[in-house]
């Protein structure tokens, strides 16, 4: 009996070598372990074994069964691995990608989104106004004298009706205050503005602006400074140097221009102008006040700050874009750089 078991074991060890498929492995299993298999048959002979030998034979029987089971299991693993390898044979993962259409948002949209997100964090809501405007909303209400050069037909696009294409998004300040139901007014207005300019690397007839306005009781220059510092540090990084340079705008007083320090590789760093801002001029509140005929924007009661940013300029600085015309040309090779 022991000899028989040893023979089964050595036969199995020899036979397993040539097993190379799941079906032959299954035949192998049946041959040894199946109902009519050799080991099953041998086990049936246990009852004929002498009592004193039963223990030794039983041990041998287990040993042989474990051996064969082990052979089957490990061959199973080998075969599975072989099958997996076959499934991916011939694939060269270093071949170039099969290209998907890529697509990209316009860099100005992307910059505008960043700006709007940052100002949303600061609790500003978006407001809008028409791009075709009248003189009152574009100039009169913003304390721009009747003979101010900006109102000239040389500088501003007009329609036969006397209406015009807004020269700044500050018109939305006026419209928002005209319609506001309560204080505070805390808005941002992204949109197009138009100037009758010759088109070159730094001038365009239209550009994307973002206007901001905060009006309440006791809004101060400190609030203006805090808001814009937070904004520019969010956009350009915490270590960006900013300066507030006194300036003049008809609709704010005091007024400032904001410069940021630009460090370009290989050049000496320089300050570049990036935004205009200031405290809303009381004459703007006067205009709103007399238009509304109520006390909500009475110049004695409210104060506020306003700012205007050129999204084009922010994007040019952010990405090192040298020429404004690239934005309106929409060359795919350009757009792809911002995908």
């Amino acid at each position: 009996m022991l000899d028989e078991l040893s023979a089964i074991q050595s036969d199995a060890l020899a036979a397993i070598e040539s097993i190379d498929s799941e079906s032959t492995l299954d035949e192998f299993r049946i041959h040894y372990l199946g109902k009519k298999g050799r080991l099953t048959a041998a086990a049936a002979g246990m009852r004929d074994v002498a009592k004193e030998d039963k223990r030794a034979v039983g041990q041998k029987l287990n040993e042989v069964r474990n051996t064969i089971t082990g052979l089957i299991d490990s061959r199973n693993v080998d075969l599975a691995a072989k099958k997996d390898a076959q499934a991916v044979a011939g694939i060269d993962p270093t071949l170039p990608a099969r290209s998907l259409p890529q697509g990209a948002g316009h860099p100005l949209s992307q910059m505008l989104n960043r700006a709007v997100d940052t100002l949303h964090q600061l609790g500003f809501a978006i407001a809008e106004g028409p791009e075709i405007e009248d003189n009152w909303h574009c100039f009169d209400a913003l304390n721009t004298p009747a003979d101010h050069p900006a109102r000239n037909e040389k500088d501003t696009f007009y329609f036969d009706s006397g209406k015009l294409l807004r020269t700044h998004t500050s018109t939305v300040q006026v419209r928002t205050m005209e319609g506001a139901k309560s204080l505070p007014v805390r808005i941002i207005a992204p949109g197009s503005a138009f100037r009758r300019d010759e088109i070159d690397a730094t001038h365009s007839i239209s550009f994307t602006q973002l206007e901001g306005l905060y009006v309440d009781e006791e809004v101060s220059l400190a609030d203006l400074k805090g808001t814009l510092e937070y904004f520019f540090h969010s956009i350009f990084g915490k270590n960006t140097e900013l300066r507030f340079r006194p300036h003049f705008f008809p609709f704010t007083e005091p007024s400032f221009e904001i410069d940021i320090k630009l460090h370009a590789a290989g050049k000496s760093s320089r300050w570049i102008e990036i935004a205009g801002c200031g405290m809303v001029d009381p004459s703007v509140f006067d205009a709103i006040h007399s238009q509304r005929k109520d006390e909500l924007f009475s110049p004695d009661k409210v104060s506020g700050f306003a700012f205007g940013l050129g999204i084009d300029r922010l994007a040019m600085i952010q990405h090192g874009i040298p020429d404004l015309r690239l934005f309106s040309e929409n060359d795919l090779r350009f757009l792809n750089q911002f995908a």
Partner: peptide, 28 residues
């Protein structure tokens, strides 16, 4: 006041970032 702010300089005025919340608008 503008003259005072101009000569004093915004550098010397501490920044403040206290804001009130603004409800989302239709435009938002």
């Amino acid at each position: 006041i503008e003259e005072v702010a101009r000569v004093f300089g915004l550098d010397n005025i501490p920044a403040r970032t206290v804001g009130t919340y603004a409800p989302a608008s239709k435009e938002d």
